[in-house]
């Protein structure tokens, strides 16, 4: 699918939990060509200290109403402004950007592991996996029960295993402490979340020899592969996480050995 710049119309903005929002936009162009794992670069207006666009994962696509959902975590003035966007406003996006997760083969057991804002791409990925006839399972980690995001949406697609750091819901600990993750057979694990979490997931998958793809959230300027700022060290040298990623197989990343 060709990349485009477009003013999309905001049709909804809902707060999930403190600091997390889902913005829903509708397009005059067909959105069904967007692949799971791809992202958009959102232009932030009326935020004087925000110069660059903000990369946001595609959280979900509704092909029926031709809308796209974007999960936003407030991390500074730019995302704070985005969190206040209201229906009827225009949101200028460059999309779709980046590569995508590789979908599983029929009959494979797959686990989608995420935490915090890293859950963003996993809903659409789960939907696509489900549509391909494979049952997705989710392992989701949060700080505590009040931080749990989109549980119903994930549950609608497959079994959800929860972990909270304080044990207020699900297993106490991190995603990698979830017994189903540690003990059951998995052919593929897809992961997105804070870097320490992804490194722990990668380490567990390497140990158990499980195919694992992670989606990186490197600091980025352009999103188009022209500024070379968002690089990640790989076995093929420094690669742009915006165009060669954001999805990488853990065997291609250098950090997974040291992490």
């Amino acid at each position: 699918m060709k990349k485009r710049i477009e003013d999309l119309t905001v049709i909804g903005n809902s707060k999930l939990t403190e600091g997390f929002f889902v913005i829903k936009v509708s397009s005059s162009e067909d959105l069904t060509g967007i692949k799971p794992g791809q992202f958009v670069q959102a232009l932030v207006t009326e935020s004087p200290s925000t110069f660059l666009r903000r990369p946001l994962s595609v959280h979900d696509i509704d092909p029926g109403e031709n809308t796209m959902s974007l999960l936003v975590q407030i991390a500074g003035p730019g995302t704070e402004r985005l969190s206040r966007i209201t229906p009827g406003e225009k949101l200028n996006l460059i999309y779709p950007l980046g590569n995508s997760f590789t979908l599983p083969a029929r009959g494979e057991r797959v686990l989608l592991a995420g935490g915090g804002c890293g859950m963003a791409p996993l809903l659409y990925l789960g939907r696509k996996i489900s549509e391909s006839g494979v049952q997705p399972h989710f392992a989701l980690g949060f700080r505590n029960r009040s931080r749990i995001l989109s549980h119903d949406e994930f549950s609608a697609l497959g079994p959800v295993f929860l972990a909270t750091e304080d044990g207020s819901k699900g297993y106490r600990g991190f995603v990698t402490d979830i017994p189903e993750f540690r003990n059951e057979h998995w052919d593929r694990v897809y992961c997105c979340g804070p870097e320490p979490m992804m490194k722990a997931v990668a380490a567990l998958c390497r140990k158990r020899d499980i195919f694992c793809e992670v989606s990186l959230e490197n600091l980025m300027a352009c999103g188009l592969g022209i500024c070379l700022c968002c690089v990640v060290p790989t076995t093929s040298g420094n690669l742009c996480s915006c165009t060669d990623g954001p999805v990488f197989n853990i065997n291609d990343l250098k950090w997974q050995t040291s992490g």
Binding site: L219, C229, V231, N238
Partner: peptide, 23 residues
Amino acid sequence: REGNPYPRMSETASGMLNAVGLQ
């Protein structure tokens, strides 16, 4: 050339700093 290690970029007021290093 591989350029400089990440992080190579920082947004600033009305601009940005880069330290790509001719990758």
